[in-house]
């Protein structure tokens, strides 16, 4: 007889499309957890998020309001869902929804007994693209030099000083490599018309992209960390295949980041390794990446650990993992009855 607890866990990011959200990967790890059993509640924004229809992974799905509808509306919807499902733990998986969830963290825990393990608002804001360069300087982490620019004049002065090629980035999304001042100006206009100002000009770093998926306990201890090198990249820049690697320097850098920033919750660190062997931190994503199932495959079920932290269990840091485990992503056509689409579309539940 099993004395394992059974948790009801809600998960967002069910958009398992060609540029996938992390939801399904998180659920696969949850299903393999040794220390508890799960019932999975899917939270979807759109009625065509594939996870909604993957009944072998998701027991029940509910539509939730878009982040732009505001925290109050989100809270009410979660209260309604919780009333039916008694959710124990929740995984927000989208960058855009994290702000609201971080702010709602205490209320969800106190009023609905829904636990989450998330970075603090300060940690969340400080690692934002716009602030990353300062962040690196503060914590002594190498970050490609980057400057915010607001005008054409600023742009040409900054790009000239940094030299070409330079990366021209939007505040939220989009990044282009510019090889000439003309190109830089072009991207400046292209991005600013879409995402507004400022535009970020970043030093271009040549090298191989390597990423780390991990969990920090909020007191400076790394609970788990697995580095991965992308093997194959889609035309959207997403990893389609990757391999776990045992890169000591990368792990050391990760431990340093977690220790100094007292990072709490899951993270993905995106690094560029130069031919000289230097590691530059390009981005910190404050959530699990879509490839996080690889960490479970490599022997660290970080998703399980995160739940246990949230449920107040003692979790030992894990250092071991198998290098050389690969993930290869595939897509699949499911056959779905129109009635199911009707249900999620009209009553918002399936």
């Amino acid at each position: 007889m099993s004395d394992k607890p059974k948790y009801t866990i809600a998960v967002t990011g069910l958009n398992a499309i060609d540029s996938p959200g992390p939801g399904i990967a998180v659920i696969k790890s949850l299903k393999e957890a040794q220390s508890f059993d799960v019932r999975i509640i899917g939270l979807s924004y759109e009625n065509l998020e594939p996870g909604v229809f993957m009944r072998h992974y998701v027991d029940k799905s509910y539509q939730v309001p878009f982040p732009g509808a505001g925290m109050e509306v989100l809270f009410e919807r979660l209260a309604y869902i919780n009333h039916i499902e008694q959710i124990d733990f929740l995984f927000p998986n989208f960058d855009a929804e994290l702000f609201n969830y971080i702010k709602l963290q205490d209320r969800l825990s106190q009023e609905l007994q829904i636990e989450m393990v998330l970075p603090t608002l300060e940690q969340f804001e400080a690692r934002h693209k716009v602030n990353l360069y300062e962040y690196g300087q503060k914590y002594d982490i190498k970050v490609p030099r980057s400057e915010m620019v607001f005008t054409e004049a600023d742009l040409s002065a900054t790009a000239k000083e940094m030299g070409f090629p330079a990366v021209i980035k939007g505040k939220f999304y989009d990044a282009y490599v510019a090889y000439t001042p003309d190109q830089a100006l072009n991207y400046f206009h292209k991005i600013s018309s879409k995402w507004g100002l400022p535009i970020i000009v970043q030093q271009y770093v040549y090298g191989t992209e390597v990423n780390v998926c991990g969990v920090g306990d909020g007191h400076g201890v790394t609970i788990g960390a697995v580095p991965m090198r992308k093997l194959y990249i889609t035309d959207k820049g997403k990893a389609w295949a990757g391999v776990s690697i045992d890169d000591e320097e990368l792990l050391e850098g990760t431990n340093k980041m977690v220790e100094r920033t007292k990072w709490r919750g899951p993270f993905e660190l995106e690094y560029m390794k130069t031919s000289e062997g230097d590691y530059y931190l390009l981005e910190i994503n404050p959530r699990f990446p879509a490839w996080c199932y690889l960490t479970t495959g490599a022997g660290q079920n970080q998703v399980e650990d995160l739940v246990n932290i949230g449920m107040g269990k003692k979790v030992e840091p894990k250092k071991e993992f198998a290098a050389g485990k690969m993930f290869v992503r595939y897509s699949e056509d499911m056959i779905v009855d129109l009635e199911e689409f009707e249900k999620i579309s009209t009553v918002g539940e399936l």
């Binding site: 129109l338 689409f341 009707e342 009553v347």
Partner: peptide, 18 residues
């Protein structure tokens, strides 16, 4: 047209809420 107000047009493949 179902009771929930879900309308499906099989010739175009479009769905609507009524």
């Amino acid at each position: 047209l179902s009771d929930s107000g879900f309308l499906f047009n099989p010739s175009s493949g479009e769905s609507y809420s009524v």
